[in-house]
Nucleic acid binder design. Structure first.
Ligand code: FES
Ligand code: FES
Lengths: 145, 145
DNA sequence: TATAAATAGGACAATTTTATCTTAATTAAA
DNA sequence: TTTAATTAAGATAAAATTGTCCTATTTATA
């Protein structure tokens, strides 16, 4: 469904949000240990999330990644997915036609469109806040061990 | 959502079904032209669909790929997706945890499960027959040109 | 039985995605 | 102002996916 990069990006954002609620900045090492991902690759994805204004980075000593507390409830899962995987999951044809077009639909268009719209609605209404709270409350986990 | 191989496989199966209704076998050249896909790669995917009993192949002169007419209404989109992409789309965790587990859910589990179930229902209730009819009736297309 | 037409299959190549490594730039604090 | 800690960025490598090519095998028909 999502790329590995996107999976890591989502998990990282949730972990950063949780720590930001506690006033703590985190670095790629902590993050990759906590979400069970390759560190350097994760760092690249974090850079991308910074460029897309999903998270903030603070360079230098005592720096790290954080998210402004007040903005966490307004960050949608869709922003993260869009930043990393682009919008093909929202707009693309299920069978890979160059464009999904009502006037020139592929054979699965009607069926696929519904699924895709469900997915889009979910991503656009799910906030980083609720995901981070799932984690904080111990109701959800970012890795298996 | 689906791999390229899976997109090609679905389109190929739809085209083969349409032709089988007309009593015609088709070969990888015709198929790849009709669905706008690389011929040799498409041939590999067809082999896979044969091994998974989704389509039949007839070797030798006057051979080609076909689907028994009577079975077309019973072939589900899910069989094709499963044959090529496996079952991760039905069962896998949205954030890539080794297994999706109610007892040890990831933060998006509840939200993702619903989408995944919608998708599974769609794939399991959509038949090759209806997709091939969309094509035959001119209500849907397998390529843009 | 020989031939031509077709799928099957293996080896290889190109591209994309995932992952690593090294160095540069930045910054707080000693 | 120096140092240590930290993110940014570029080059490279590994792995997976996508795509190509060549040969073997099968089979209907002349
Ligand atoms: S044209 Fe394929 S999903 Fe719309
Ligand atoms: S554990 Fe992630 S979707 Fe179920």
């Amino acid at each position: 469904m999502f790329s590995k990069a996107c999976e890591y990006g989502i998990k990282a954002a949730i972990f950063i949000a949780k720590n930001s609620y506690e006033g703590k900045r985190v670095n790629p090492k902590e993050i990759s240990e906590e979400i069970n991902s390759p560190q350097a690759f994760t760092a690249k994805i974090l850079q991308s999330l910074v460029r897309h204004n999903v998270i903030n980075s603070v360079k230098g000593a005592y720096g790290g990644f954080e998210i402004e507390k007040d903005s966490i409830p307004y960050i949608k899962l869709s922003q993260i997915v869009n930043a990393i995987d682009g919008d093909s999951i929202y707009k693309g044809c299920g069978l890979g036609l160059e464009t999904c077009n009502e006037e020139h639909p592929c054979p699965v268009h009607d069926k696929f469109k519904e699924i895709r719209n469900n997915l889009r609605d979910m991503l656009e209404t799910t906030t980083l806040e609720e995901l981070a709270l799932n984690l904080k409350n111990g109701n959800a986990f970012l890795k298996v061990i």
